[in-house]
Design a protein around this nucleic acid. Structure first.
Length: 488
RNA sequence: GGCCCCGUCGUCUAGUUAGGCCUAGGACACCAGGUUUUCAUCCUGGCGACAGGGGUUCGAAUCCCCUCGGGGUCACCA
């Protein structure tokens, strides 16, 4: 049997990280077994669904590299892949169930149902449909319907018990009395989620349903529906929830929830993918950094953890840094460029004209940032006015600790600047600088701290000889000369 | 509250299916050292968990029962 899985987002917002992980596990499972990964848009909520959300979700899926074999944009043999375009089929199946007595029309109306529920809750009973229309004969109900009475269609839950073997949780079962006679068709004739999801999954020949744990309690309804329809029941796997720091389902209350935001925040794509894997799954218990190829090679649904995972933002950032540092300077520079432009440090044209220079800077900064977006702030000093560089209090204090600061800076001007003008390498500068120090009998901090303040205005940062080269002879000279005056 | 699911370091997890290899391993975070011109990276070390209680067994994180705790869900949303 060919594996066919699906991810079925509703286009009512961004791509939630929990949804992204669900999609990722489905995708990996399909790729692992040479099966098909289907993308279906569950747009039955007309109030909240938007085309913009759909576009954004698709774009995020593409960014993550999760290609779908069937779905929007690519089509497929079981389309259409938008749920709203499949209602004809839904109504057909609903009519069939109605005829067979496996579903029935309910004329109670939402007002009565709401009142009933309120009364039951007031009496501390569990809200449940009281079955008033359950016994209506098909002939009677058809007559009422034809007379124009409004009705919803309910599924007739049989007696007994419904169980299934969940791939992550093992055997799970529910007493059917606990499963209410749920609504398949609303009184406006539109089908509900629990109904369409089964129709569509069956029509699309889905073999494995991997989804979030919040759907666990929907499963008996769906299993019963498959059975009533005389269809094969697919395999299920319910993934643990991704939790916020409040231990509740991840929501905007406790942090960012969409993959688009993390992308915009400058997290490397592969770090996002890797991190998603780590929430509920482990490669071998030892390896933390691994590629999606390794996920595909090793992913088993049964290995997914049962417990919910609190979203560990710290670890996510660490992982981002790991990936950022693995990139070549050219790759990293390309990823950082939009942030540098956005921060107004350079225009796209300037960046293109000075790409070699920018790559050099990025190479020197790579182990000092974790997200692409962190670069602008850290290199902003390079773009300040040479004679009006802002000095951090600590940087200035460090510089002033050294009595010989003026002599040191003068020596730099005299010995190192000419070399810089000739265009030597950072290591050559470094050697010359150290030779100069030993000749004069100065320790490195006596050079480092005043020079760092003079050039960057910061107490910490990249290698000083790199900075000299980045700045160039002219700026370096101007900054040092300005510092000599300002340090007095 | 009913039903369902879950419960190993602060957090993510390995180990639980086939009880002994577990004086419970790794990672993030934190702390302390080291490398370094600073910051960062990197290296070394430390801190730190089987929710609790009963069983079963020569032996239990692993099996059984109870308790406690957490979560999900109870819509004519998905």
């Amino acid at each position: 049997m060919t594996v066919r899985v699906r991810y079925a987002p509703s286009p009512t917002g961004m791509l939630h990280v929990g949804g992204a992980r669900t999609a990722l596990f489905n995708w990996a499972w399909a790729r692992r077994h040479g099966g098909a990964f289907v993308l279906r848009i569950e747009d039955t909520d007309k109030e909240r669904s938007t085309e913009e959300s759909e576009r954004s979700i698709l774009e995020a899926m593409e960014w993550l590299g999760m290609d779908w074999d069937e779905g929007p944009g690519v089509g497929g043999p079981f389309g259409p892949y938008h749920q709203t375009q499949r209602v004809e089929r839904h109504l057909e199946l609903s009519a069939k169930l109605l005829e067979e007595g496996k579903a029935y029309r309910c004329f109670c109306g939402s007002e009565r149902i709401t009142a009933l529920r309120e009364e039951q809750m007031a009496n501390k009973q569990n809200p449940r449909y009281d079955g008033r229309c359950r016994g209506l004969s098909l002939a009677d109900s058809t007559a009422k319907a034809e007379a124009g009475e409004e009705f919803a269609v309910r599924f007739r839950v049989p007696e007994g018990e419904t169980g299934f073997t969940d791939h992550v949780r093992g055997d799970v079962s529910f007493q059917n009395v606990e499963v209410d006679d749920w609504i398949m068709l609303r009184s406006d004739g539109s089908p509900t989620y629990n109904f369409v999801v089964v129709c569509d999954d069956a029509d699309m020949k889905i073999t494995h349903v991997l989804r979030g744990e919040e759907h666990l309690v929907n499963t008996p309804k769906q299993v019963l529906l498959y059975q009533a329809l005389g269809l094969d029941v697919p395999e299920f796997g319910h993934l643990p929830l991704m939790l916020g720091t409040d231990k509740k389902k991840l929501s905007k209350r406790t942090g960012h929830t969409s993959v688009q935001i993390y992308r915009d925040l400058g997290y490397p794509r592969d770090a996002v993918l890797n991190f998603l894997c780590l929430q509920g799954w482990a490669l071998d218990g030892e390896t933390e950094v691994f590629s999606v190829d390794e996920l595909i090679k090793n992913f088993e649904v049964k290995d997914v953890s049962k417990g919910g995972a609190i979203f560990d933002a710290e670890k996510f950032q660490w992982l981002a840094g790991e990936y950022l540092r693995q990139e070549t300077p050219a790759e990293c520079a390309a990823h950082c460029a939009p942030y540098v432009i956005e921060a107004g440090l350079m225009s796209a044209e300037e960046l293109a004209a000075r790409s070699a220079w920018f790559e050099q800077v990025v190479a020197g900064m790579q182990e000092r940032i974790r997200l692409y977006s962190e670069l602008p702030e850290k290199i902003a000093f390079l773009f300040e006015a040479d004679d009006a560089l802002s000095y951090d209090e600590k940087a200035l204090k460090n510089a002033k600790k050294h009595e010989v600061r003026g002599d040191v800076l003068a020596a730099v001007l005299e010995n190192l600047l000419p070399m810089l003008e000739e265009g030597v390498s950072a290591s050559a500068l470094s050697e010359a600088g150290k030779a100069m120090l030993s000749e004069k009998g100065w320790k490195f901090p006596a050079l480092g701290q005043p020079l760092r303040c003079a050039l960057t205005g910061k107490a910490g940062g990249p290698d000083l000889f790199d900075v000299l080269i980045w700045l160039g002879a002219e700026s370096s000279r101007a900054r040092i000369e300005s510092a000599i005056k300002r340090f007095e």
